[in-house]
Amino acid sequence: MEFSIASQITQPLQKVGEKLQGWITEAITMLPNLLAGAVCYLFFWLVARAVKRILGKAMGKYSDNKVLQNLFTTIAYYSVLGLGFFVVLEILKLEKTVTSLLAGVGVIGLALSFAFQDIAANFISGIILAFRRPFQVDQIVEIGGVMGTVSRTNLRVTVITTFQGQEVYIPNKDVLQNPITNYSILGQYRIDLAVGVSYGDDLEKVEELVIDTIKNLDGVIRHEDMIFTYTGFGSSSVDFEIKFWIEYPDHPGFLEMRNKAIKAVKKAFDKNEITIPFPIRTLDFGIKGGADLSQMSVRVLSKEKD
């Protein structure tokens, strides 16, 4: 009985010892390959860093697009590391592992393509924007109703700092799908200023005065493209618009020029006794079919007090 118990304990221990001995033998046998794999991967890592640095310098000579530079240098870096990883697996004689990894990468890639459609769409849109370059950092743009200065971009989002001092993160997919207005690319902006004058003023004089006033403002350009048009008969004024062009370095510059134009027109009107009327209502009882107010008899009804 004691012999059978001892044999039951000894046999498993013997099998464990044999297994450990086999692992140690295999490890010793694989040790040269492990060292060769480590040296090989270190080599590929150094090569990847060198390729990233050299490619970055080379692209910097031909393009100042930081997004494209980061994109291509990052792709090159991880491509070299990936190649080194598969070479190491071959050195370690793990061919089946290589095949399984390639198959797994395909399956995982297919699954991730469905799970992260928005991320992939933003990434691809970021690449398209990097090539097309509809705007650059520090330019004033309006995208999807958001207006401000482009502070930074990457392959996922475009960051706009609004004129109220807030940062808005717009996914690149939405940037690509919405109209993009770039106010800085031409460096010019047209201001449309609406004003009204009284019906008693000389309209020819008003037009000449307003055009001369705007032309004499510093910062107004393209004088030949200035447009003055009367737009209609308002309830208390004859309305007009003056359209003129300015240099557009930034949004505060636009606000300052509009402010200067309003003050200059008001000052010119005051000097030449031209009126910008308040909203008024005129009661005319002498129209056809009516009677003048002065000719109407007014009766006052009084109630006798008890």
Rank of each mutant, 00 (worst) to 15 (best):
S7W: 10
P12R: 08
L13A: 11
Q14H: 07
K15R: 11
V16I: 14
G17F: 13
E18W: 00
G22W: 00
G22Q: 07
W23Q: 06
W23P: 00
T25C: 05
M30L: 15
L34V: 15
A36N: 02
V39C: 01
C40G: 02
L42C: 08
L46Y: 03
A48G: 01
A50C: 08
I54E: 11
G56N: 08
G56R: 04
K57P: 01
G60W: 08
Y62C: 05
V67P: 01
V67W: 00
F72L: 15
T74G: 15
V88H: 03
K93W: 01
L94N: 05
T97G: 09
V98C: 04
L102S: 06
A103E: 10
G104K: 05
G106D: 01
G109H: 06
G109I: 12
L110E: 01
A115D: 10
F116K: 14
Q117N: 03
D118N: 10
I119G: 05
A121G: 02
I127N: 10
I128V: 15
L129Q: 11
F131K: 12
V137C: 02
E142L: 05
V146I: 15
G148I: 01
R152T: 13
L155E: 04
I160C: 08
T161W: 00
T162K: 04
F163Q: 15
I170E: 01
L176S: 08
L176V: 09
T181R: 09
G187E: 12
Q188Y: 07
R190M: 11
L193P: 11
V195E: 12
V195H: 13
V197F: 05
S198E: 13
Y199Q: 12
G200R: 14
D201N: 15
D202N: 15
E204P: 02
V206S: 02
E207P: 02
E208C: 01
E208H: 06
I211N: 04
I211G: 04
I211T: 09
I211R: 13
K215H: 10
V220I: 15
R222D: 14
H223C: 05
D225F: 06
I227T: 13
F228L: 14
T229Y: 05
T231H: 02
G234E: 04
S237Q: 13
E241T: 14
E241P: 00
I242Q: 01
I242H: 01
K243N: 08
K243I: 08
F244K: 09
F244R: 12
Y248G: 07
D250S: 15
D250M: 03
D250W: 02
G253S: 15
F254M: 08
F254P: 04
E256P: 00
N259Y: 14
N259C: 05
K260D: 11
A261L: 06
I262A: 07
F269P: 03
K271Q: 13
N272R: 03
I274P: 05
I276P: 06
P277N: 06
F278W: 07
R281A: 09
F285V: 05
G290E: 13
G290K: 09
A291H: 09
S294P: 02
S297N: 13
V298W: 07
L301G: 03
K303L: 11
K305G: 04
K305W: 04
D306R: 14
